[in-house]
């Protein structure tokens, strides 16, 4: 058998770019599990995961639980305890299906706002908020997930468009510097 396979990300070459006040990192290898609400008992999974659509929370095992659509959650990170009840709750592993980038820094909002069709001002997208939006005309999931008090966004898209998105965000940042 061949040696252990290596994970290939969506971005070619360097996996991190930065500009004045922002940096953009490819975090696509992080595990991503899509979890649906239980078929039989409405609210069971939501109760277990603790957040509704539009919000996120960090589970005790460090996994970021994002309410990405009504009745749908995306669990980001290595799980050890945040797996939902098995009965009826459909889960689909999307680790390989989604590109995931982290845009961080004091200028991160300016960079993202330039190419995002929705209002991401503080009141409209506070820390912990999760939404679907068009970024550079691509359907994306945005999760505001500040790091040590600094503005930070997780931006997820179809994996195949990840390279395009990475370049579009870098370009939007460049035009501000």
């Amino acid at each position: 058998m061949p040696e252990q396979a290596e994970f290939t990300g969506p971005v070619a070459g360097t996996r991190e770019v930065s500009g004045t006040g922002w940096s953009l990192r490819d975090q696509s290898p992080i595990p991503k599990l899509l979890v649906y609400e239980d078929f039989e008992s409405d609210g069971l999974v939501r109760g277990h995961l603790g957040v509704a659509f539009g919000a996120s929370t960090t589970a005790p095992d460090g996994v970021l639980v994002c309410g990405v659509r009504p009745g749908e959650w995306l669990l980001l990170g290595e799980r050890s305890g945040s797996v939902p009840p098995a009965s009826g709750a459909v889960t689909v592993d999307l680790t390989h299906g989604l590109a995931m980038f982290r845009l961080t820094g004091p200028a991160a909002r300016h960079v993202l706002a330039a190419v995002c069709s929705i209002d991401i001002a503080e009141a409209m997208l506070p820390n912990g908020a999760v939404c679907g939006a068009s970024v550079a005309r691509l359907a994306c999931t945005l999760a505001r997930d500040d790091v040590a008090g600094e503005h930070s966004y997780l931006i997820l898209s179809q994996r195949s468009a990840g390279r395009y998105l990475f370049e579009a965000l870098g370009d939007a940042g460049g035009s501000r510097t």
Binding site: A123, M124, V130
Partner: peptide, 15 residues
């Protein structure tokens, strides 16, 4: 309008 918008949007900060 901002107050209405925040109230109508699932992810916005509560108005």
């Amino acid at each position: 309008l901002a107050h209405r918008l925040q109230g109508a949007t699932a992810w916005a900060a509560p108005a």
